[in-house]
Design a protein around this nucleic acid. Structure first.
Lengths: 111, 111
DNA sequence: GTAACCAGTATCATGGAGTATACCAAACTA
DNA sequence: TAGTTTGGTATACTCCATGATACTGGTTAC
């Protein structure tokens, strides 16, 4: 019981650490939704700056969350893709989206 | 499709905002796990300081995430409880714990 | 040939989340 | 009655994530 709790807190903090910051999840979501180019991703996330997107993409690549490919001869020269590791966040993201949506509905209903 | 995406990003950012910071989720988890006293919660979350716990609890009370009751004659004078609203995070938290745990296992397996 | 788009980088500024440390009054407890 | 626990507050500091703004070198579209 006691140990179990510590383990859970640990697991939570691990997850929070990997998903840390304002932009990680929106970026993952955007890429998983079919945006693969830098500007495409940028436009799909309201409020993000070029600088933040650039930084986050770099670190996420280091952390194996996404894969960046550069191919001068392809129609899309620079392409960002999600890795299987990244996709393992699917359920987490889904639940968060679900919560966010119902939260909004709740607020609208109460106003 | 396009609108749907914006809505999802919005929902994600809403959720992130409410759960923002390093400590919210661990605190919710702790309270939901049966810790109801200030020091109890504090001890259950490694690394948190009195100040941060105090601050977070206050704001979470304002946001209706938790309920604080003071009763001088009860055996527990000050008690923190989760609200139904707070409990709506259950699925989100569960998924995050699940991810964190399997992530740890993964790392151990690969080392 | 110029305007717009792509994929970023460079610099500078800043607010507030988080840390560290000490302290308090009341209650309980040995 | 001295020590410990409880539920916090006060003050001071630090640093880093984020924001704002500008710029660049290459490519494609008109």
């Amino acid at each position: 019981m006691e140990r179990n709790q510590k383990e859970e807190v640990q697991a939570l903090q691990d997850t929070l650490h990997v998903l840390g910051g304002k932009w990680r999840l929106p970026i993952i979501n955007s890429i998983c939704n079919g945006n693969h180019r830098f500007r495409e991703i940028e436009r799909s996330i309201p409020g993000i700056t070029t600088r933040m997107l650039s930084r986050e993409l770099k670190e996420m690549e280091l952390n194996m969350l996404i894969k960046r490919t550069e191919d001068r001869d392809a129609e899309i020269q620079v392409k960002y893709e999600s890795t299987p590791y990244c996709k393992s966040f699917g359920p987490v993201i889904e639940e968060m989206i679900k919560w966010g949506k119902s939260h909004r509905e709740e607020i609208i209903r109460n106003s």
